[in-house]
Each structure stands twice: as structure tokens, then as C-alpha cells.
Amino acid sequence: MKVAYWPGCVSRGFTSELHGSMAAVAPMLNIELVELDRANCCGAGVIAEHSQELADTLNARTFALAQQEITQGADLMMNICSTCQGAQSECQQRLDASAEYRAQVNETLSDEGLEYQDGIINKNFLWVLVEDIGLDKLKTLVRNPLTDLRVGPFYGCYIVRPTDRLDINRAQPRDEYLDQVIEALGGTVIDYAGSHKCCGFPIITMNKEASLEQAGRHLADAVDAEADCLVTPCPLCHLNLDLQQPMAAKQVKRELNMPVLHLPQLVGLALGLSPEDLGLQHHIVKPTAVIDWSQAVVGGVGGW
């Protein structure tokens, strides 16, 4: 399949290993990525907090650019960031609700010759994996099943709430997809308290203690549940769970050492890519548990 691909900002900034691992995994899943390199930040809820119209117009611009690719054969728009998914879905809800409002927004976009038409399909890589590629197909592609790897899912708020806006229901349990993917890759899903909670990142500059306390607690819960690692479809969660983990450990006064993988990295390991190809060496918390396991299955990784 071919997708109009919105990688987001953080995946090309502080978590560039995410962007790299998606690029490495895509051809193995037969996904052709047409990157929307002129598109802009989704606003992460912060721009909407400043001005809703500004956030709506910026995302309408990204949607319009994606629709140009869709007209030329892309199946849908795909993102790799829970926060992008949530922030963009919120704007899309308003844009799709009213033709009058959409016309006002399109008026601003018209200077650039762009127009957003309602009803774009914009899916996170996680949703594409389950709904478009399919778990059965994914299973057939697994070369190194994640046998005995105990993985804790960490979804990120924006991709699981609010359920009505994100079309989450019993027929389409998108808030369970990460569990399903871990199982399809042969891993063991760890049930722990924090899987659907907030990583705390949005208030890291406003109330650092509360922010790190959230990250620290979820990581500690995963440690107590004997997880080998966490996996997340959200690079912003990754910042608080991995980049800030040494600070979070101080905040909760515990040793954590919990590796946190990006979703494409976990998929890539099962599809047979090496940890280095997936950029695991760039993480702050060394994914030792994952690497030990990979060595047993994949062979030496070298260069560490």
C-alpha cells in the first residue's frame, strides 16, 4: 500500500531513531511512504490552546497536502505519533463538522492554492498495522518471533481518548491494538497499571515533579510486573519515559532501567532487522534486555 506519510516533528528531532526505524520497516511491510515534507507541526494541543483556528488551519494544510498525494494514488494519510493522531483528529472533527467553518479555513489556505475536503482518513501506524495490513498477514512476516520477550504496551493518551472522536468501540477496539500487535509478533503482553495512562510530558515545564512522578510510576509499575521493555506509538511519551527516565527514577527514588521501544522498532526486531538498523543504540536507557534476547535469536549486534 501507498501512504501519504506524516512523520511528525519529534520523530525527526529528539527521537530521530523513530523516523529511521519506520523507514527501515516500511518496505518489509510493503508500505510505500510518500513523505509530506512540506507539512507542518500538528500543534500537539498547545497551539489549539493558544488559538483553535490556528491549529485547525495548520492541520487543514497538512490534510490538504496529504489529499494531493491521495489523489495521486496514496490510500490514506499515515502518522507515527499518538499526539499527532489525537491533535489532528480533534481539528478534523471541527473541520468536518461544518461546511461554513471549513470554507473559512480554506479561504486562508487558498493563498497557497490548497483546499481541504472533508473526510480524510488519517491513521497512526498502529491502526494501519491492524486494520490495513492485518494481524494474520503480520504474523506471516515475522522472522524472529519475540518469544519470551515480556512487553508492556504504553499507548499515550491522544490515541485512546476520547473514544468517540477516535472511533474506538467494540467492533474496532483501537485501544487494544498494541496488545494485539505484541501478541502477533510472538511477544508476551504485560498487564500493568500505566498502559493507558499519561506519561506526564505535557507539563514537564510547568510542574516537573508531577510530570516525572507520572513517568516514574508507570515505569516502576512495569518493573514490578517484570516487563523486559515498554513499547509506545508516541514519541512524546518516549521523551518522558526514556530521555527523562534518569530524572524520573530520581523523582520516584527507585532504580528503573526500563527500555522503551518505538513501535516500528519492536515490529522491526520481529521482522528480522538488527537493533542497530532500528537505532536502538540511540536510546538513553540501554535496551539491554531486548538486546540480550536479540543476540540469542538474531546473533551478535556489535559496535556497542
Partner: peptide, 8 residues
């Protein structure tokens, strides 16, 4: 400013 926008 202590709200994390978690939608809960």
C-alpha cells in the same frame, strides 16, 4: 497549568 490534557 497542572493539567496534562489526558482526556480522562
Amino acid at each position: 497549568y497542572d493539567c496534562t490534557h489526558c482526556f480522562k
